[in-house]
Simulated assay, not measured.
Amino acid sequence: MEEKADLRKKRTKRLLRTALLELVEEKGLERVTVRDLTERAEINRGTFYLHYRDVPDFMERLSGEIFDGMKSLLTQLNPYEIKQYAEKGVPYPGAVQVLNYVAQNADYFRVILGPNGDTRFSMKVKEFMSDHLYSHVFSKASDEFKFPRDYLIAFITSANIGLYTHWILNGMSMPVEELALFITRILYKGPLAVAEILK
């Protein structure tokens, strides 16, 4: 009995997630009502209120879950490890993991990064990446940098977010391994050197 209730709950959340993302893509988060959502998901309003306070609460919780999953992968990234993979011509495993996670949640990322999405999510990811790089990766290497460290970090984080956004909004046509290898090379060699390789 408990298992059936759990399956029902998962199914309801799945239906609501699909409905929410469809509606946000169509008209933007601010215009989505509980009525829109429950009609699209074909569930009653009472069921919605068992799980969520309102539409913003639902989106906030969904974004929180996605962010937590991404955060656990981003904390494992270390740019200093990229060199060994780039020199072998293989993708950095951390990049593969992040891209696979994005692909598994493509419905969410396509909407949140799209024209009716929420820029706060990508800013949150960018801030977390910056914090991680600043505090844990480049913290002991300040003497090695002849260029301001915050600019280097801004470049790395913005480039990564830009690549993920471009990839997802263009239907993820490039395979994960291929894009991960491109990211590995571009982080190691820089964009102009990679452009020369690809000529």
Rank of each mutant, 00 (worst) to 15 (best):
K10H: 12
A41R: 08
G171D: 09
L21T: 04
Q97M: 06
F67L: 13
T12C: 00
I197V: 15
T38F: 00
V125R: 02
Y92D: 04
E42S: 15
E65D: 11
N105E: 08
V194I: 05
K88C: 00
T119H: 06
I197D: 15
R35F: 02
K9T: 10
L113N: 02
S122P: 01
D118H: 03
G94S: 11
Y49P: 11
R17A: 12
T18W: 02
I82G: 06
G89V: 09
V98A: 09
T33V: 09
K124F: 05
D107A: 15
L192Q: 13
I43V: 14
V111I: 07
V55C: 10
L74I: 14
A95K: 05
Q76D: 09
V98S: 02
K124S: 08
V194K: 12
K140N: 13
G94A: 06
I186N: 12
L77P: 01
D36K: 07
S173F: 04
Q76K: 15
L77W: 02
E87N: 14
I153H: 03
T38S: 06
D36V: 07
M172Y: 05
E127Y: 06
V96S: 03
F58S: 06
S135N: 15
I197P: 00
E144S: 13
I168L: 09
E65I: 04
E22R: 14
E3I: 13
V90P: 11
A19M: 11
A180G: 05
A193I: 07
V102F: 02
N100G: 06
G162C: 04
